[in-house]
């Protein structure tokens, strides 16, 4: 009676494209009634699976608008946004919900955990909306909290955790449905520098394990952790450059041998160079 039959189009559940994100002549105009504001001007952008990308820009540069569109929270006014091969331009909002649920893991600046709800329940949330059984949800949520280093704090409420710990819970939550894309909006904006480094190292680790991470930031030293930096100004893409991540630079300096993912790194580098 309460449960509406779950109808998810096949195209949402099947991974189809090597280009995880593809923006084609994408324009966003805000219509406030009296005036129209141009949010983004003809953006063309491709991000492949497995990349670690920073989107940078001052406030008003259009990076938040881009974030909303990449996150399927908003639709482009003109042009196309293909997420994993799916054109999101004309999808109904419930289909966008399903896409957000299966394809995107969000990490926000202000954590956006649900208050008075345990870390475990917060991590379970996306799986609840994916109609995964309670048992499986709990098992996976515990594994994820373990993975972000909060295995013993699953019962804590958000207000009992530090900022860094809250962001780890949020990252665990973003990973819940194993989405192909992790979308982080100023993830270190509310954190002290030590926690910021920890969180960025966590993103680097996820990337090394194969995840595609796109983060929006205005801090250079945060962007420095990524492999590719895309800059926006006044609604336009102004530069798109490959970057040697800090961790990589350190690794090259110290030549740590016990890092198994290392041989794969050049592959990403070459991928970046193509863009």
């Amino acid at each position: 009676m309460w449960k509406k039959k779950e109808v998810i189009p096949d195209y949402i559940t099947q991974n189809v494209s090597e280009d995880l994100i593809k923006l084609v002549d994408m324009v966003k105009i805000y219509d406030t009634g009296s005036i129209k504001v141009l949010g983004l001007k003809r953006v063309n952008l491709t991000i492949k699976r497995g990349e670690f990308v920073a989107i940078m820009g001052q406030s008003g540069s259009g990076k938040s608008t881009l974030m909303n569109i990449l996150g399927c929270l908003d639709r482009p006014t003109m042009g196309h946004y293909f997420l994993d091969g799916i054109d999101t331009a004309d999808l109904p909002s419930d289909d966008l919900s399903a896409i957000r649920n299966r394809k995107i893991g969000f990490v926000f600046q202000s954590f956006n955990l649900i208050s008075r709800t345990s870390a475990l329940k917060n991590v379970e949330l996306p799986m609840t909306y994916a109609h995964i059984s309670k048992k499986a949800r709990e098992k996976r949520a515990l594994e994820l909290l373990e993975r972000v280093g909060l295995g013993t704090r699953y019962e804590h409420m958000p207000n009992e955790l530090s900022g860094g710990q809250r962001q780890r819970v949020a990252i665990a939550r973003a990973l819940a449905n194993e989405p192909p894309l992790i979308l982080a909006d100023e993830p270190t904006g509310n954190l002290d520098s030590a926690s910021s480094v920890e969180i960025m190292e966590l993103f680097s680790k996820l990337h090394n394990e194969g995840a595609t991470v796109v983060l929006v930031t205005h801090e250079e030293d945060i962007a420095a952790f990524t492999n590719r930096i895309i800059r926006f100004r006044d609604g336009s893409l102004v530069s798109d450059t490959p970057n040697i991540p800090v961790s990589k630079r350190e690794k090259e300096e110290s030549e740590e041998p016990e890092e198994p993912e290392e041989p794969e790194e050049p592959e990403y580098q070459s991928g970046d160079a193509l863009c």
Partner: peptide, 13 residues
């Protein structure tokens, strides 16, 4: 909270 839930995949229903 509603915004968070929707972002994480909650549908209208």
């Amino acid at each position: 909270e509603i915004g968070i839930r929707k972002a994480l995949g909650a549908k209208t229903w």
